[in-house]
């Protein structure tokens, strides 16, 4: 056996070991590229900062709000190649007081678009596996105050907007506004273009604006101000159709 024949296998082994290590380093680099993603919502009405019980003019009707809560689920972040990061197990309960959410780790260099559902996925909404009375208090899908569950129709109010409207034109909101959208058919997708590069740090933030007034586009609040979905489905459908327009990039 010549020296050459002895050295060749050693070289091959060394090269293989190098290649193996290099692959490992690539993986480490990918891991290093991960960042924590946070979602921040800004509640507005006609572009102004939301304030509970303040009077806003919505389509010519003075209106105030005291509840504006909704569930967000099935969050998907896409890059320009339409590759998606999915946060499928998250159910977030947005309220004017609760607007910042840790979504989790993500490895993406460009946030092209965010898609999400307003509401709760059918398998959790139908209460057949775990119902809202069985969930720990820390779970957004547990019973809430104000209630986000329905009792007469097992499931959640996906969107709950309560307040007062001025139906008689005297300028003072005094009649009930009660918009409760739910049931599986009303699970609604929203999509917002982000066009934002990931920042090279541990925490990236996606900021969205939620403008409540946009929920009521082409709705006459003097006559259309109450729906619990099933009782006034026509109004519920209008609200559902308006939901995607309420979200924009901030």
């Amino acid at each position: 056996m010549t020296l050459k024949s002895k050295v060749t296998p050693v070289l091959i082994l060394a090269l293989f070991a190098f290649a193996w290590t290099s692959c490992g380093n690539d993986d480490d680099n990918t891991s290093d590229g991960k960042t924590n993603l946070e979602l921040q919502l800004s509640y507005t009405v006609n572009g102004e900062a939301y304030e509970q019980d303040a009077v806003y003019n919505i389509g010519g009707v003075n209106t105030s709000f005291n509840v504006a809560n909704f569930y967000i689920s099935n969050i998907r972040i896409m890059n320009e190649d339409s590759e998606m990061a999915i946060f499928e197990d998250l159910n977030l309960l947005a309220t004017p007081e609760n607007t910042t959410f840790e979504l989790g780790e993500i490895d993406i260099d460009h946030y092209h678009m965010i898609r999400f559902n307003i509401g709760v996925q059918a398998e959790e909404n139908n209460q057949s596996e775990i119902d809202f009375t069985s969930r720990p208090a820390s779970d957004p899908l547990a019973m809430q105050t104000p209630a986000m569950h329905w009792n007469w129709n097992a499931g959640y109010r996906f969107l709950r907007v309560d307040g007062l409207v001025d139906t008689d034109g005297d300028g003072t909101p005094s009649d009930i506004l009660e918009i409760h959208i739910g049931t599986d058919n009303f699970l609604t997708e929203a999509a917002v273009m982000l066009q934002k590069d990931a920042e090279d740090n541990d925490q990236n933030i996606i900021e969205l604006e939620f403008d409540i007034a946009n929920l009521f586009t082409d709705i006459d609040l003097t006559t259309e101000n109450i729906t619990h979905t099933g009782d006034y489905p026509d109004l519920a459908i209008k609200i559902k159709d308006n939901i995607p327009t309420a979200f924009t990039k901030k």
């Binding site: 139908n126 209460q127 057949s128 119902d131 809202f132 009375t133 329905w150 009792n151 007469w152 129709n153 097992a154």
Partner: peptide, 8 residues
Amino acid sequence: GGVPTLDF
């Protein structure tokens, strides 16, 4: 039929 079980 809005409620699926007697339990709640």
